[in-house]
Amino acid sequence: MLSDILPTGFEIGVRYGKVEPGDVVAVVGAGPVGLSAMMTAGLYGASRVIALDVDSNRLDQAMGFGATDSVNSGDSDWAEQVKAKTDGLGVDVAIEAVGLPATFEACTQIVRPGGSVANVGVHGASVELRLQDLWIKDIAITMGLVSASTTPMLLKLVTQHKLDVEKFATHRFDFDGFLEAYETFEAAAETKALKVTIHR
């Protein structure tokens, strides 16, 4: 958790997104990295964290990771629901944590003028950047690869029980259950798995 997902969500999402005290943050994608961004957004004083996903189970889980609100992005009026939770202008910081063109586009739709879009997801396909619509909104778009330079600080917060990373490990297996662990993770939508751990 501390070698990858937590520093990725924090460094590339929260820090690059320049979350400030009082900000409203939307995280598009409630997988482990998105949940890490939700968990750490409070470190920088986010007043509200809106989780977006198409999986209702992941949205339920997000409420235990720092989200204050959730929106099913499969709903036809998802963008209006997000804007209704702000003052109608959109969120201060939109964090993309999936890596799909549609989720990046979603972030650009819900960010307020003067806000930030922090792209965390790894994209395997080209993304359309609608500069003709975005330039006048004066938004910043950031992205990057995690350096894990914040891991020592995050580790201190974990040891002080300020960040509960144990929640990510939803299923535990010993070495005899190796194949079952893979099957559980492969069927995460049915098993409600976030991360599986294998131990001796």
Rank of each mutant, 00 (worst) to 15 (best):
G42P: 00
Y16G: 02
L194Y: 07
A188Y: 15
G17I: 08
K85R: 15
W135N: 02
A102R: 14
L145P: 00
C107F: 12
V146S: 10
T103R: 09
H123W: 09
S56T: 14
A46W: 09
I139D: 06
R15K: 15
D164A: 12
A84V: 05
A94R: 09
Q109T: 10
E80W: 02
D53T: 07
Y44V: 01
M63C: 05
T108I: 02
G13F: 11
C107M: 07
V71Y: 09
T170M: 03
T170C: 06
A188Q: 13
D69F: 08
G115L: 03
L157T: 08
I95L: 04
T8G: 05
F168T: 08
G114C: 06
F185V: 15
V120P: 08
F104L: 10
V122H: 13
R172Y: 10
F65S: 06
A79E: 15
K167Q: 14
E20C: 05
G31M: 05
E180H: 10
V93R: 06
G64K: 13
Y16D: 12
P113C: 01
T142I: 01
G99Y: 13
D133P: 00
L89E: 12
Q160V: 01
A30Q: 15
T86D: 06
R200M: 07
K156I: 00
V33E: 12
N57V: 07
R172W: 11
H171K: 09
A102I: 11
E105C: 00
N57T: 10
A102E: 14
H199V: 01
T151A: 15
G144I: 01
T197S: 12
D174P: 02
A125C: 02
V28D: 07
G99I: 10
V120D: 11
T197H: 03
L100I: 04
F178Q: 04
A84S: 14
V98M: 09
G66L: 02
V14Q: 06
P113M: 07
G66H: 10
A189S: 09
L100S: 07
K137P: 00
L43A: 03
V54I: 15
E183N: 13
E186T: 05
A26G: 09
G22Y: 12
V25R: 08
D4N: 14
V93Y: 10
G99W: 13
A46P: 05
D176F: 03
S116H: 15
N72T: 09
G124N: 14
